[in-house]
């Protein structure tokens, strides 16, 4: 539930049309940053940092690495802010920087293990046996997910958890929609296979 709440702002991700007031405000912020306005850059950070960090965590699954990635992406955006067209929304541009750099980093540090995430938190009223079984299922899912190539894992997470369309993911990952569909199909197949194997073993 907690993770669902944390990811709520990410549903705004890549939304093509901003509210006009928000768009105008964002345009003003970008223009001020171009003139070196520190407060405007602070506003930009405040506006996009949670989403950026959430996206970076999805790619790298490591707090420190994700934070480094986000910092690097913000500084890169600042360096190249003159190349950005302020008439367009900022987030798609920013998210593309994060995804491109994040996938490169993810490939480079493939040996390094990802953070061990918290175990399944038991529901009140569930029996220890049920908790143990559910915990086992989720552990298997985590292992199956981590076995996926980073790009494929990101595709299934953005589609199933964040609610992005195929076209949005294709734009973000700079791929053809058919390629994204294929990644999604293979990822689902592998995850369902892992879950079915688990059911078979427990039966």
């Amino acid at each position: 539930m907690e993770s669902a709440q944390a990811s709520a702002p990410q549903r705004e991700f890549l939304r093509p049309v901003l509210l006009s007031d928000a768009a105008v405000e964002e345009q003003r912020i970008i223009e001020s940053i171009r003139d070196g306005n520190t407060a405007a850059f602070g506003q930009l950070i405040e506006r996009y940092l949670p989403r950026a960090l959430g996206l970076a965590m999805r790619i790298l699954r490591h707090h420190e690495d994700a934070e480094d990635l986000v910092q690097d992406a913000f500084l890169s955006a600042l360096k190249h802010i003159d190349d950005f067209d302020p008439a367009r929304p900022f987030w798609p541009w920013m998210s593309r920087i994060i995804v491109n750099r994040g996938l490169d980093l993810s490939a480079a540090r493939s040996i390094r293990s990802t953070e061990i995430l918290g175990d399944y938190v038991a529901d009140r009223g569930s029996s220890p046996a049920m908790d143990a079984e559910r915990s086992d299922i989720f552990a298997h899912v985590r292992v199956a997910m981590l076995a996926l190539p980073p790009r494929r894992r990101l595709v299934i997470e953005l589609f199933e958890l964040e609610g992005f369309s195929i076209a949005e993911i294709a734009r973000l990952l700079d791929s053809a929609p058919s390629t994204i569909r294929w990644h999604l199909h293979v990822a689902r197949h592998q995850l369902r296979g892992a879950l079915a194997h688990l059911h078979g073993a427990s039966a």
Binding site: A6, P50, E115, R142, M145, E160
Partner: peptide, 17 residues
């Protein structure tokens, strides 16, 4: 796939920020 999404969500694949 709602069932798959539920399992992925509950698996806490990325720690909350």
């Amino acid at each position: 796939d709602e069932a798959l999404a539920h399992v992925l969500r509950e698996s806490r694949l990325s720690a909350p920020v």
